[in-house]
Amino acid sequence: MRRFSTTTIAQARKLRFESLKDIKLRAPILPTHKNFDVSPDHPLWQFFPNGNESLAYRPASELDATSRSWTMSELRHKSFDDLHKLWYVNLKERNILAKEMWLLKSIEQVNMGQYDELDAKLVLNQKRIKQVLLERQTSYERVKTLDTEVKEYLEDFEQQYLNANEQELLEMNDKLVRLQYAIFGIQPTLSDIQEVNEDLVNGIGYVGRLKSQRYVTENPDCGLELPLKGIVEELPFLFKQPSEAVEEVLALREQQTPMLPKPEIFEYLTNVLEDLKASEIEQDQ
């Protein structure tokens, strides 16, 4: 603790320089970074190749000259998340290189060839990642125009499903689950369904029609009058056995529930799916 003292200071105490000529000047005190701590996790360390322990820049000989860029075929194997991560890894490396090049420019170093080469490889990586992602996007967009082909396929499948015998039915059901996902994006485990969109609605309609038709042809006395009216009647066929689904539909018909208007379909589906997920979580617990 500091203590102030106002007691008179002894006369012997010197508080003025007597002779300016006889003063011995002291050398300037250089500032030092050791006076404050910088966390090794400081985000700015990401601009240095070795973080905390790196020097200001790497000499050209220390740069990686042997590696090559990723090829398009190698990148096409990777998921979006992987490509996203790879993009940022490349970006960070490029940031480090850019910092080094800027530093060397300021100390007038002329030989930037190695740094440029490495940067060019990283840029190529990033361009290729972008290209792969856009390839996938354009093919996804083009598929939307192939309405007739998809429709034909679905009709063929419908015929096959309705005409299949008991042995084949198991196979066909498996195939149907895969078809649901392939064409309509309906996940096999319903709790995984993230987005409610037009494809989902169409898919539920298709599956509902298919299964209900088959059931009715097999059991004409069930009392179910086709066609099914709207999403509310089609949905049970997606995650229940046909017999149970038919029972539910008949019950709904007895209650005379009106057909759901189009604007409310999405809301209805999101609610149903949320309920499903909640019930599954409860079951797990």
């Binding site: 194997h77 998921s79 598929v143 998809v150 392939a182 064409i183 309509f184 994006g185 969109n197």
Partner: peptide, 10 residues
């Protein structure tokens, strides 16, 4: 390592 496979049109 293959982490992506084309599986669905939608």
């Amino acid at each position: 390592e293959k982490t992506w496979e084309f599986q669905s049109l939608s």
